[in-house]
Structures are given as structure tokens and as C-alpha cells.
Design a binder for these strands. Structure first.
Lengths: 228, 228
DNA sequence: AGAGTAATCAATTAGTCTGTTGATTCCTTG
DNA sequence: CAAGGAATCAACAGACTAATTGATTACTCT
């Protein structure tokens, strides 16, 4: 009787460990973070993460074996997506736990932002209400695909690569707020650098779409297919 | 500029990976689960988990390196505890994600319970309100230490080992509800088996103290020292 | 001081994980 | 049906991990 309990427990903790293993590799965490933005092909994920195709494919298979993501083949391409929105929620739980327990994260982030003069103290709630009231120009600087999979209502899609060429279309009399994937995505930081250099009043919002959604705020999608 | 972003991201995901690594081992998950019940010495944890002292000590050090737990030396004994109640919350998040994504967990659990005729459908909310109104006898069958670190108000501490010898003190005209550490702890299941064999009307509550607390319900501690 | 005990350390073994490379499969398109 | 590209597979080297064993440290108590 005590040993049959042991067998049961071993089986249970082994299962819990499957989830833990999935999120024990930095590469896989990066892939999961990307997938929180919406479905992507293996190729696109590999490019974003700066990894080889084969390696990315293997990591994605590990994630699939732990049932955190699902794959679907469309013609030549395989599209991976989160199996469930709870996976994204879990990723955020993990991220927040790491933020609260590992001061290294704050240290690394602070240093990164200081290096590019981005030490804004910005009150988040105020910023969010200004965005919702439409009194600022809101830029979504992620790749268009991700914008289409889900974005903040009122945002304009200006992928970072296109930013310089589209500056003329932006009103100069309003503050510009740029956002991207979330607090550890560098796109918005880079966008703000460009904008300020060109004379715009620009700030970055840390929150990405998953954070926005987690606050219970509305999210818009452009295509029928999108939204896991 | 793209590569400096890469360095930053690598550093961040490596940190997130520290949390993931900590929860990637079944043994460590079991230790974390135990620590959610309250602080324990290395020896006690090793005994509960059925592992060698040295191995347990090493796993605890891994958990400490990831800042999920803290250790404090008192005389000959080292007491480990969760570094933060958020760690327990995170463990529950992980457990719930595993439950929702890995049907193996339900399969294993169902089989285990069926083997001991424990296929009660019990409506949880009703059960909880009956417990709160005091119309059932509530037994906490965990080791006394854990009861003292925090228990459900109104519960009586009857560690499983003492159950047989204390049956006489239990009222026979009321239903008995037994609880232990949580849904994957076997103590309450075993207690119910004993109670039923002796003619009591007994059922098991899946929720443990952490689940109870997570519902926002009150928890009582017996000693000053307890409660991480 | 010396015995005794909780915990850790050190060293070892077997096993697992990561990332690379090159071959292979599967599908589309001309 | 052949060419070409997306993704996976297979095999490998190097690094890391888990559990065991025996030695060592750190503390208490007599």
C-alpha cells in the first residue's frame, strides 16, 4: 500500500516534469514566447530566434511532445501554434515568477535600456488609458503577420523594417507609443530610438498583446484564420 | 544593433530557463509540492519523497540556486522553505496546465482511484460549504508538522499513522471528510479506506491547504513560527 | 575534548540533452 | 516527372544531469 502510492506519485510527477522539461531550455522558451504572438511556420520561427532550421524543428517537436504546441501542415509549410491559450498564460506565469525571484532579470534589462537611453519611468495604467482614449498614435512594430494574428484596437501596423519609410505618414503633433511582443522584445525599443532621432515624441509600452489580453482588454484580429 | 538585441534576449531566456530547469525534474517537483505544505528539514523531505539524503540535498540545492526555495540552519538541522508564496502558486499553475494538457494524468489518477473503489463524484463546492458550516467532521491526515504549519479551520489533526488508534474519539453519526496535501497525495485516500472499513461514512476532499488558500478561504496555523 | 548526527561535498557512472551536419521525405510547380 | 524548397530524420560529438557511494564538515551534547 505505501509502495503503490509511490508508483502513482512517480507517474504523476513524471507527467508534471514533462511540462517542466518543455520550459527548461532557453531556446524553447523563446519559441514559446514567439508562438504567444500567433501561429508561425518553422522557418519563420527559426529566423526570428536566430537558430538553424533543424534545431528549431527539433525544439518544436519537443514542445509538441509535451502537448504545449500543435502543428498543422499546409502545403509545403508546417505551421506551429500554441495548443491552448492557457499555455500563453503559463508562460506569463513563469516569466512573472522569474521576474520576482531572479533579480538578474531586472539587472540585465536595466542595463540594456540604459545603454540606449530608455530609462522612462512611464506610469503603465495612465499610459494604457491614454491609448484607449486614442489621444496618442499607437504603433504595432511587429512583423505584419503577428499584427494580423491579433493586435491592440486602434494600433497601426508599422513593422520596424518599414518604419523609416513611413515616417512621413505619422502626425508630428501627437505623442507616438510603440509596442511589440512584450517586455523582453527589442523591436519597440529600436522603434523609439528611430522615432526620437527623427524628432518625434515617442515612448515605448512594455506590454505586448498577451499582456494586454491578460488584463482583460480587447484584442482585434485582421484575418479570419488567426487567433489560436 | 540586431546582435545586441540577441545578447539581451539570450540573457533573458537563460534566466527564464533557470526556473524551467528547476521544475524539469520529477524529484524536484515532488520536493516543491511537499514544501508547499510548509517548511521541512532535509531529512524529513528525503523520507517523504522516498529518496536518499544526499540526493535530496542535491536537488534542494538546485532549487535554491534557482531561488525557489531558501534554507536556514538551526542547530544540526537545515530547514528548507519556499522562498515566496508565489512559488506555490506557480507550482499550482504548472499542475493545472499539466492536468489540462496531458490526459495521461487523468488516466493515471482514475486508475489509481478505481483500484481502491474511490470513484466518488463529489461536488466540490457543496462539499466545501458543508465543511465551512461545520456539518461534517474534518480530518487533516497529514503529519502533524504540516498541520501546524497551516490547516483548514475546524480540522482535527489525525496523522494517518495514528488514525486507527483514534477512531474511538470520532463521532459515528456524522460524515467524515479527510484531506491531505492535495489531489495527488495518497494520505486521504488511505484514510478513507480505513474509515470505511470500520463503518464510518467517509469521503475524501481533493483540495489541500494550498488549494484552499488559493480559493481565498481562510487558513489557520498553530505555531508562531510557521507560515512561510 | 570526543561521540554522534544532519547535511554537504567529491568523485564516479550511466544516462540524457543540445546543436551540427548531411541525407531523406513530402509537397508544389513548371 | 523532374526540380526545388520546407521540414524532418539520423547520427554524432560535447556538454550536462541524476543517483550512488564514501568522505568530510558543522554543530550539539555529554
Amino acid at each position: 500500500m505505501p509502495s503503490s502510492g509511490r508508483k502513482f506519485k512517480d507517474a504523476i510527477y513524471e507527467q508534471l516534469g514533462r511540462i517542466g522539461k518543455a520550459v527548461s531550455s532557453p531556446r524553447r522558451l523563446e519559441l514559446l514566447d514567439l508562438l504567444c504572438q500567433g501561429p508561425r511556420t518553422v522557418e519563420a520561427l527559426a529566423a526570428e530566434a536566430g537558430q538553424s532550421l533543424a534545431n528549431t524543428s527539433q525544439h518544436l517537436q519537443v514542445l509538441r511532445a509535451s502537448r504545449l504546441v500543435e502543428a498543422e501542415k499546409h502545403g509545403l509549410f508546417v505551421t506551429y501554434r500554441l495548443a491552448d491559450e492557457r499555455v500563453c498564460a503559463f508562460f506569463r506565469d513563469l516569466r512573472r515568477l522569474a521576474e520576482s525571484r531572479l533579480h538578474e532579470i531586472q539587472a540585465v534589462t536595466r542595463q540594456f535600456l540604459e545603454e540606449r537611453g530608455e530609462m522612462e519611468p512611464v506610469d503603465r495604467d495612465t499610459l494604457i488609458s491614454r491609448i484607449r482614449s486614442g489621444e496618442v498614435t499607437l504603433l504595432d512594430v511587429r512583423p505584419r503577420e503577428e499584427f494580423e494574428a491579433g493586435h491592440i484596437p486602434g494600433a497601426v501596423s508599422v513593422p520596424l523594417a518599414e518604419l523609416e519609410s513611413r515616417l512621413a505618414a505619422l502626425p508630428r503633433d501627437r505623442e507616438v507609443v510603440a509596442y511589440c511582443r512584450g517586455p523582453y522584445c527589442v523591436l519597440a525599443v529600436q522603434a523609439v530610438e528611430v522615432l526620437r532621432a527623427k524628432g518625434f515624441r515617442a515612448i515605448r509600452m512594455e506590454e505586448g498583446v498577451p499582456d494586454w489580453r491578460a488584463r482583460g482588454l480587447p484584442v482585434e484580429a485582421s484575418t479570419k484564420e488567426a487567433q489560436a
